[in-house]
Every structure is written in C-alpha cells, then in structure tokens.
Nucleic acid binder design. Structure first.
Length: 852
RNA sequence: GCCCGGGUGGCGGAAUGGCAGACGCGUCGGUCUCAAAAACCGAUAUCGAAAGGUGUGUGAGUUCGAAUCUCACCCCGGGCACCA
C-alpha cells in the first residue's frame, strides 16, 4: 500500500481533470440541469479563508449534483472593476488593468489548487470590453424603458474615494469601502429607477422559499413600505387668509389629525425660502437651513437627535377642523421621503412630542390608552379642548380617539378604523388621498472614477444628452491614461471629444462610469452564454439554466448585490429577455471565518491564516474537509489548525481502511487472531447496516447543505468499518483479500461519499485501490436501502414517569403488548407498590410507564 | 426605538416533542518502543465511594414526556434607524 501523499496526488489529478475537460458543461446533454453558483470574487489579492469556505461549499454542491445525475453549470469569474485597482495603479504608477489581471491570475491558480470544479471556458471578467459592452447595452435598454434618469439632488459624496455613492453604500454615515465620513452635495447624477419595482421587489420575497429568513427580512426593511395617505393642508397668507395653495404631507396616522398642533417642513423643502423671504422670520429660518446642511451624515446617524427648529411665521389650515396651524422648519424632517413636510401630532409621535416640549408648542391629547387617567375626563366631548397634559412621552400605540369631533370613540392607530374613516372623509372632501411610500430610494449609479464601465451617453450642445448608438458599443476605457499624474476620464481629451450621433456636431462624452454593482447584477446570466457577440446572452439559454438553483455568498450582500440583481432580473424579464421573476431560487449565506478566538482576521491584527500555507502542510482535501466540518455553513466559523490536523489524520485512516477492505493493505494490517467468529459476524452486520444508514443520512444532509453532519456520519461508517476490520477472524480477512462483496461495497461507498468533499483523495482511491474505471466524479451517487439499515433487535429506554430507569432489548418486530410487558418487568423493582396508570410505547425509542 | 437570529461539556458542535452531549478537537490512562513520534485501544457533563441525584441562560406553563412548544425576563450577535 502506498502512503497518502496529497502533495503528489493533488497537482497530478488537477492537471488530469483539466486535460480531460471533466467539468466542461455539455449544452446538449439531456440530463436535468442544475446551476450551482458562488458569488464571484473581487480580485483584491490572493484568496483568504473566507474564499476557501465559500467556494468549498459551492464545489461540494456541484460535485454532489453531478454524481446525482445532473448536468451541472458551475462557473467562475471576477468582479474586476473597482477602486482598489485604481488606487494601486496610482501608487505604483501603472494601470489598474495590470494589477487586476495579476490578481486574477493569482486567484485562479489558488482556486485550481483547491481542486474546485469550474468550467473555466465560461469565465467572465467584468473589466473585459466583451463583458462591459453588454453592461452598456443593458444601460441603454433601461434608458429605452424609462428607467434611467439624470437629475440634480442631494447625494452622498465620499471625499476619500472622490466619488458619489448609492444610498446602499453608506453605512452609518460612512463610505462602505473606506469608512470616510460621507458628505451631502447637490449634484447632477445618473439613476436607475429601482423604486419603480419597489412593490414587486417586496411582494416577491414571499416566492423565495429557498432564502434565509433574515435576508428577506433585511430586504423588506430596506424597501420599507408604509401605507397611509397624502393630506393637503391649505396654506394661509401672512394675514391668515386662504391662498388657494396647499402643502401636502404623507402620514400613516390620519386618525390623529385632530391632534395636529403644528406643521413642519424639512430644511431642504423646495418652496421654503419663498415663504419667509422678506419677513422677520427669514434670518432665523435660513440660519437653521444653513446649520442643518453642515451636519454630517455621521452626526445624523449617531447623534443624540437633538432637534432644532424655527417658526416661519406662516400658517396652514387643518383640513379636518379648519384650525390654524403654525408652520415650522425643523431638522428632524427627512427631505427626500414623502413630500418633505409632516403634520406634527405631539401626543401620538415621540419626535413631535420632544419638539413640542422644546419649543413650547401645544400637546393636544386625542388618543388614549384604556387605562390612561385622562380617560374619564376626555371620554366624552366636553366642549373644551384640553391642551395641557403632563405626559412623559407620546402615546404611539393603538387607542381610543378623544377630542376628535365625529371620530371620538373610534379605535385609532396604524391601519385602524379611525384612520380609515378619516381618510375616506378627506378623499370625499378632495383634501386627501390614499398613498404608499417606500424607504427605498433610486439607485445612484454614476461614479466619478476611471476604473469602471463608461456610461454610454454623449452631451451635445444642440441635442442635449443622447445615448451612444448600440452599434458604437462598447465605449472603451482609454488605455493610455496616467492616473498617477492626476489624469481622469474628464481630462482625457481623446476620450471626451466626440461627435453627436444625432446632429453630427461636436460633442462631449459622459465621463462618469457605472457603479461596480451594475457589473455584478447580471454576470450570472452571462455565464449561461459567455461568448455571445450579438447579445448579453441568448434568452433560450438563460431560461434553460436559470434561475440559479443554489447561490452561495456572504451575508454582507444581503441588501446591495442581491437587491440589485433581483431588480435587473425583473427589468430584463419585462424586456422579454427572461421568463422568470427571481434570479436565485436557493440562497446560502455563509458565516464569516474568524480566528480561533473569534476575532476577525486582519493584517493589522496579524492573525490572518493563509490558505496557501495550510495547503502546503496538509493538502487541499484536508483543508476543504476541515472547513466543512467546522460547523453549519451559515454560522461563523472559528478556524483552528488542530481541527485541520485531525482531519488529515481522518483521511489517512480512511486511506488505510479502503486499501485494507480490498485486501491491498499488505502485512501491516491489524487483526485479532483470537477473535470470536460470532462477534466478528455481528460487527460485519453492523458495518452493513451503517453502510445503508449513513448513505441515507449523507444524502439527506447534502440536500440541506448540512456538510458538517454529513462528514460526521461518514466518520461513523468509518468507525464501524474499523471495528469490523480490527476484530475480524481469518476468514473475514480472506474475504477482503479476495475482494469479497461486502468489503468491496463498503470501500466503494466510503470513496464515493467522500468524493464531493475530498475530490483528489477519493479519485486516487477510486483509481488505485478500487481500480475503478473513469473518474469517481462521474460515478453515480451510491444507493441505499432503508430496510437494510434496520437492526434485528433494538434497545429501548424504559422510563418511569418520564425518567429513564432501565434498558430492554427487544426484537425489532416485537408486538406492542410484549414490549410493554417486558418493560414493566425491567422496572418491577422501582414499580413496587405503585399502580400503573398508563404505558406509552414509542417504537424503536422508549417505553414510558406512568404510575403513582 | 423597530425588525431578525442565538444562548447546550474545557472547545467546535449534534439532537426541532421521545435515552441530551452524535462526530471531532483537547485532556487523562494504556498497547507498541531503548525512547519518542506515529498508529491502535480505553476513559472523559457534573455531584457522589456507591446507590442515586442534578444538568441545555433565568422563572413559570402545556405534555405521559420539553434543549425542542407557549408566556415573561436576562444576556450576546446582526440589520435598520428623526422614514411621520
């Protein structure tokens, strides 16, 4: 028997598999298809343990699926545009492409060294013009469909990255990439109108039964649907006379309109200056506007929310009772949600309450909880309105409406009868309308950076902004650019100067590039048809492969990438290119790989574990298996090398056992010359049962991505096999020597079960120990018979009043009465003097005798 | 504040109404060896000499039976957050 040597086996088999094209997809196969995909990596350098974990999960699913008879698409590519490449280029006076492609080469080599079964012929690289060309094509398609907009509005600007960011890329007021404080600026930028799909993006989460609940929850939160009403408040003149103009607010609590004691505009509210221009209030209001604009996003996100406001001197009329309501401006109103104006009801909203207290505005109680001490006083209309209450905070829950005219006594709250009644009345009076608002904002896709996909648009002094004609795609990034010298697309004359495709006059190219997330929003579609030169992909091919059957990636993309991809899928479906609604049928979000102390691995902490070093010591198969065994894939994993060493020992053990089972272990085999034949027979039978039980268990576990327990079950089969081999007497030893059927069968099962996990190890055993034909990775998955997993006899626990008191062994097919009698016999001592009231029998498990 | 996870030996974890701690790591003891390593065997929740207790964050409840279901509370992690 040769020794297990991963360092010799692994590179040799990797080369062989590649030469044989073992993982190339056959488009013409009539097998059922399965699309297994891991999120493509950013080529930031060499791979880290997080990559090892993510891509190992995917490889196990892909290899298992092939053995189950599927035609598997399992591709790999790179999300290759982005800022780190540009920064590296500036630092080293080179070009981002150089850094990017070098890193891609490094990562590709590492992936190959891990033995991942990709079809390398389908590789997609986002910065390749043959790919980004179609990203531009999709941009034009969205433009045609009215989903591209260029508009001026306050945007998030990262000074460090020198570019604007999408809403989703601002985390607690900071840039998602460099963590700098984000600034608000008014800029004209390009948007994808993802809000047009807000309702469907929310509603279709229900279809995603194969997604983790927390990811769906996060997306639902982010979309943030609120149902309420738009209510018009008529603006009064400075003298208090009706003007005929009105200001609309969005509210989910129209039921509280009688408690509206003031009205608030956001500092950025469009018509604000007009209202105060030339009045005594102008200075104070504009000072507040100025101060609000200086508050950074970080302060907004983390501050103590001290509210500031100023009175505008103007009033509006409350549409339900005509009351004159003062109009304030305050920094707690969000400008780009709803209408940028709110009606303030301090008794029912904590923010309004705090503001009212600070500025001495009235708090009118109009909704009370049933146990509120004010209740007896306010229960019936008293003819007077109480405005002085001594509450510690607002009452935001459901309650009974009081002091609310005809609605007094009704139940108020979100989606309450009171709310419905008031909205209905407002609609009849033409003063309000049902409305739905979403927290989701449009996707700002333009970036002021070089290393991205150029936006295919041209600015013509005569024709305005015009799309680049489809036949002129791609708009290529110029290669002769000196980023280190401060050159940008905007200063690159050869890029900027062009002619207008409409009038032929001189024009300028758009110099912004697209957010890198536009590249990752459709790459999985390109994999189905990666070499297409006429379209981003062929619809028939995409529809045949998609949706992705199993998608695997990090939880950090719960909102960004996954939401954008769902949006793209729906748009391209509406464009007639796809016939499904959702891109990813099943999603596995892997947990982070941390160090042994539960700390995030980072260069600054010096606790980074290098996959290369681990492979160099134990081989890729042991690294893969150790990662899988560490715990459930969606939980955090604490990497420790002892587990890896243990896995290496386990592989060595299986190696010897498999050779031994087929009689090739040589004379060093252990066996007991004095073993008892009957005992050896029992162990052989136990091994046979385990062979069936474990195949069943591993199959079930792989179907549910429970890789850790699958491996534990394989270890159990290994243990049963080792027990048999150790105690076998001479004749069983001969059975192995002559390739006896049971030993041979168990050896094959072990090798096949391990094939998805430790592919090189299994392949070498398949070919050398088992002398199998072809590759183990093309073998069918082992069958199992649940009947053969059953033992003749079972041991049952016997409980007295729920406590285990004894064990009995009975025939598996013994009848219930006999089992119950045997059980009572077994605990007769403890039963003494007690009356048996009830006996519960759970076949195969226990008997519980209830007595007292 | 709102929403979502989670709390089990020395450690990673298993068990989703039926014998808690599978499987592995670690530790201890043994075989082999001049010795060590490797390999192999055995032990390993806890109190107790044993019999027998106790034990899945805390407290209550449902049930013949609860880590698992229900309610309340404590703690840890994640997401969103002045979104009306």
């Amino acid at each position: 028997m040769k020794a297990y040597n991963p360092h010799e086996i692994e590179p040799r088999l990797q080369l062989r598999w590649e030469e044989d094209g073992l993982y190339a997809v056959d488009e013409h196969s009539d097998k059922p298809r399965r699309y297994v995909l891991e999120m493509f990596p950013y080529p930031s350098g060499d791979i880290h343990m997080g990559h090892v974990s993510n891509y190992t999960y995917g490889d196990v699913v892909a290899r298992y699926s092939r053995m189950r008879g599927f035609n598997v698409l399992h591709p790999m590519g790179w999300d290759a545009f982005g800022l780190p490449a540009e920064n590296a280029a500036i630092k080293h006076h080179s070009h981002p492409a150089k850094w990017t492609y070098e890193n891609i080469d490094t990562q590709r080599a590492s992936f190959k060294r891990m033995g991942f079964s990709y079809d390398w012929d389908r590789t997609v690289v986002a910065c390749d013009p043959e790919y980004y060309r179609w990203g531009q094509w999709i941009f034009l398609e969205l433009w045609k469909r009215g989903l591209v907009e260029r508009r001026n509005s306050p945007v998030n600007w990262c000074p460090e990255c020198a570019t604007v960011l999408a809403n989703e890329q601002v985390i607690e007021g900071r840039c998602w990439r460099c963590h700098s404080e984000v600034q608000k600026q008014d800029l004209t930028q390009w948007y994808y109108k993802i809000t047009d799909y807000a309702e469907e993006l929310l509603a279709d989460l229900d279809q995603l039964t194969g997604w983790p609940e927390n990811v769906k929850q996060q997306q639902a939160n982010w979309i943030g649907k609120s149902e309420g009403a738009n209510v018009d408040f008529e603006l009064l003149s400075a003298e208090g006379e009706p003007t005929g103009e009105s200001i609309t607010v969005f509210t989910t609590r129209a039921d509280t309109l009688f408690g509206c004691s003031f009205f608030v505009l956001a500092p950025e509210y469009a018509g604000l200056h007009e209202l105060v221009a030339g009045t005594e209030h102008e200075a104070e209001v504009m000072a507040l506007v100025e101060a609000a604009s200086k508050v950074s996003a970080v302060e907004r996100a983390q501050g103590d929310h001290e509210k500031h406001g100023a009175f505008t001197g103007r009033y509006v009329a409350n549409p339900v009772n005509g009351e004159k309501v003062p109009v304030w401006v305050a920094d707690y109103v969000v400008a780009d949600y709803g209408t940028g104006a709110v009606m303030a009801v301090p008794c029912g909203d904590q923010r309004d309450f705090e503001f009212a207290r600070k500025y001495g505005l009235p708090i009118i109680p109009i909704i009370l909880g049933d146990d509120d001490p004010l209740f007896p006083q306010l229960k019936d209309e008293q003819g007077r309105v109480v405005t002085e209450v001594d509450w510690p905070e607002a009452y935001a829950a459901e309650g009974t409406l009081v002091q609310s005219g005809p609605y007094t006594g009704m139940v108020g709250g979100k989606h309450s009868p009171g709310e419905a009644a008031i909205v209905e009345a407002l609609e009849k009076a033409g003063k309000g309308k049902r409305a739905t608002e979403y927290r989701l904002r449009d996707w700002l896709i333009s970036r002021q950076r070089y290393w991205g996909n150029p936006i295919p648009a041209i600015h013509c002094p005569a024709c305005g902004v015009v799309p680049v004609p489809e036949e002129d795609l791609p708009v290529r990034l110029p290669e002769d650019i000196d980023l280190a010298a401060g050159e940008t697309l905007a200063t690159h004359a050869g890029f900027v100067d062009t002619v207008c495709p409409q009038c032929g006059g001189p024009a300028k190219r758009e110099t912004d590039t697209m957010d890198t997330f536009t590249c990752s929003s459709w790459y999985y579609m390109r994999y189905t048809d990666p070499h297409n030169v006429h379209a981003p992909f062929d619809s028939a091919r995409a529809n045949a492969w998609m949706p992705v059957d199993q998608y695997i990636g990090g939880i950090e993309h719960a909102i960004l990438h996954l939401l954008y991809s769902r949006f793209f899928t729906k748009v391209l479906r509406d464009a007639g290119m796809l016939d499904f609604d959702e891109p990813f049928a099943n999603l596995l979000c892997q947990g982070m790989v941390l160090d042994a102390n539960g700390e995030v691995m980072s260069k600054s902490k010096g606790n980074v574990v290098s996959p290369e070093e681990m492979i160099a010591e134990y081989g890729a198969d042991a690294v893969r298996a150790a990662m899988l065994f560490m715990g459930p894939p969606d939980k955090e994993k604490l990497w420790n090398e002892d587990g890896l060493a243990g896995m290496y020992k386990f592989l060595n053990r299986v190696w010897r056992i498999v050779f031994d089972l087929v009689g090739k272990a040589g004379d060093e085999t252990l066996f007991d010359p004095e073993a008892d034949a009957a005992q050896a027979h029992d162990l052989a039978m136990a091994m046979k049962r385990e062979r069936h039980r474990v195949v069943g268990k591993v199959t079930e576990d792989f179907e549910r991505n429970n890789f850790n327990t699958a491996l534990a079950a394989i270890m159990e089969l290994t243990n049963a096999t080792a027990a048999f081999l150790r105690l076998r007497p001479a004749e069983h030893r001969m059975e192995c020597k002559t390739g006896g059927p049971l030993c041979r069968e168990v050896a094959e099962v072990l090798v096949k079960l391990l094939a998805p996990i430790a592919p090189h190890f299994a392949e070498e055993l398949w070919q050398v120990a088992l002398e199998g034909t072809g590759s183990v990775h093309e073998q069918p998955w082992p069958e199992f018979d649940p009947e053969q997993a059953k033992a003749d006899e079972v041991e049952l626990a016997v409980q007295l009043n729920g406590k285990v008191k004894a064990k009995v062994t009975v025939a598996a097919d013994a009848d219930e009465d006999a089992v119950k009698a045997a059980a009572q016999q077994a605990i007769s001592g403890a039963l003494e003097g007690k009356a048996v009231r009830k006996v519960i029998y759970v076949p195969g498990r226990l008997v519980n005798v209830v007595a007292g």
